[in-house]
Design a protein around this nucleic acid. Structure first.
Lengths: 187, 187
DNA sequence: AGCGACATCTTGTCAATGACAAGTTAGGAT
DNA sequence: ATCCTAACTTGTCATTGACAAGATGTCGCT
C-alpha cells in the first residue's frame, strides 16, 4: 500500500510522510504545509493532494502509521506493566511527530475505519501489558480501572515531557524518569 | 491589564480572547484565525494585531490566563491530593481551550516572562496539593517523584479524555472517573 | 509491438490567511 | 483648545489549501 514501485518520483507517498515527520519534529503539526512537503520532495505543489486528498488525509495516514508502530512497540515490550509503560513513553519520545498527531483528533479523520482499526490494535496491546503484571500480583480489584490508571500515568508523563513542561530536575533520560514514576503504581 | 475602559470597541482584547476560546472549544487551536476573531468581534481584520502583535501573541495571552485560572482552581481545591487531582481534571474539561493551548508551547511564546510566572504559580499550587496528602500519610519516600506521578496521572487522564481516546465504558462523568483513577495512587 | 486505460504528477487559479505599512479617529492630559 | 497617544481602519503582499484541467509515464491486454 505504501510502497508502489518506481513511478515518476519513486515513492512519493513515503517521502511526503517522512518529510511531514521531520517538520512536525521541528515545529509541531501546525507547521505542516502541503506545499512545503512537496518542495522538500521535489515535486509540484499539487502532488500531495493526489496521494492524500488533503492535509487531513496526510495526517490520517500518519496517525494510522503511528498507532501501528505503537502497537508493535508495546507487543515487543511484553506483558509487564513496567516494561509496557516504559515502551509507551519511549515511543512517544522517539516518534514524537506520530504521537503528537495521534492524540489530536481534530487534525485528521479520527473516525476513518483504518484509524479505528489501528487504534484498537494499540489498545489491545496496551491492555495486554497491564493485564500481565496484574495477574502476577494476584488480580486487581478492577482491571478496567487499573488499565486506565496505567495508561493515564504513562500518557501524562509522555505528554508533559514532550511539552517541555517538566522541571529540569527530572533529568534528561525519559526512560529512567518514567520507570520511577510508573513504579509508584505498585508500591 | 485586560480591561481598559471603553474605547472604540469597549473591550476588544477581552472580546477577542473570548472568541478564541469559543473557536478552540469547537475546532481546536489550529482553527483559530485572527481575521475570523476580528469578524466575530465586529472589527477590522487588522485590529487584533494591535492588541496581541500576532497570533502567537494572542495565544500567549490565553496561556497566561489559563495558568492563572488553573492556579486558582488548585488553590481552591485545597491540599488534598484527591481533591487537587479532581480539580485539575475538572479544569481541563471545563476550560478545554485554555488547557489545550497551555500545553502546546509551539503555539505561543512559552518563554515569555508572564508565562513563566503564571506557570510557576500553577506548579506551586499543584505541589501544595500533593504535599498535603503525602504529609498525612506519614511522608513519602520521594516527594518529587510522588508529585510527578500525581501530575502525570491527572494530566494523562485529562488529555486522553479531551482527545476522546477513552472507551465509552469509562462513562460521561470526568470527575467521577478521575477520582477512581487517582485513588489508585494510594491503595 | 501496439494500444488503451489508469495512476501519477504538473500547471493554473481562487479565496482565505498572517503580517506589515500607513493612515484615521477618539480619549485624556495639560 | 490643543496635542498626544492608544485604538482601530484600509490597503497590500506572499503563502497556503483546495480544486480543475491537462500532461506524462506505466502497465495490462491483445
Amino acid at each position: 500500500m505504501s510502497g508502489t514501485r518506481g513511478y515518476h518520483h519513486g515513492d512519493l507517498r513515503r517521502a511526503l510522510l517522512d518529510a511531514a515527520v521531520e517538520v512536525i519534529d521541528e515545529s509541531g503539526p501546525a507547521a505542516v504545509s502541503l506545499r512545503d512537503l512537496a518542495r522538500r520532495a521535489g515535486v509540484s505543489h499539487a502532488a500531495p493532494a493526489h496521494h492524500f486528498g488533503d492535509k487531513a488525509g496526510l495526517l490520517t495516514a500518519l496517525a494510522v502509521q503511528g498507532f501501528e508502530m505503537l502497537a508493535d512497540a508495546l507487543r515487543e515490550a511484553g506483558d509487564d506493566l513496567l516494561d509496557a509503560g516504559v515502551a509507551y513513553v519511549d515511543f512517544a519520545v522517539r516518534h514524537r511527530a506520530h504521537f503528537e498527531v495521534m492524540f489530536r483528533p481534530e487534525l485528521y479523520r479520527a473516525d476513518a475505519p483504518e484509524v479505528r482499526a489501528a487504534r484498537e490494535g494499540a489498545g489491545d496491546a496496551l491492555r495486554a501489558g497491564v493485564a500481565g503484571r496484574a495477574a502476577r500480583d494476584g488480580g486487581p480489584a478492577d482491571p478496567g480501572r487499573d488499565a486506565l490508571a496505567a495508561w493515564s500515568i504513562v500518557h501524562g508523563f509522555a505528554t508533559l515531557w514532550l511539552a517541555g513542561a517538566l522541571p529540569t530536575r527530572v533529568g534528561d533520560d525519559p526512560q529512567r524518569a518514567a520507570r520511577a514514576v510508573i513504579r509508584r503504581l505498585f508500591e
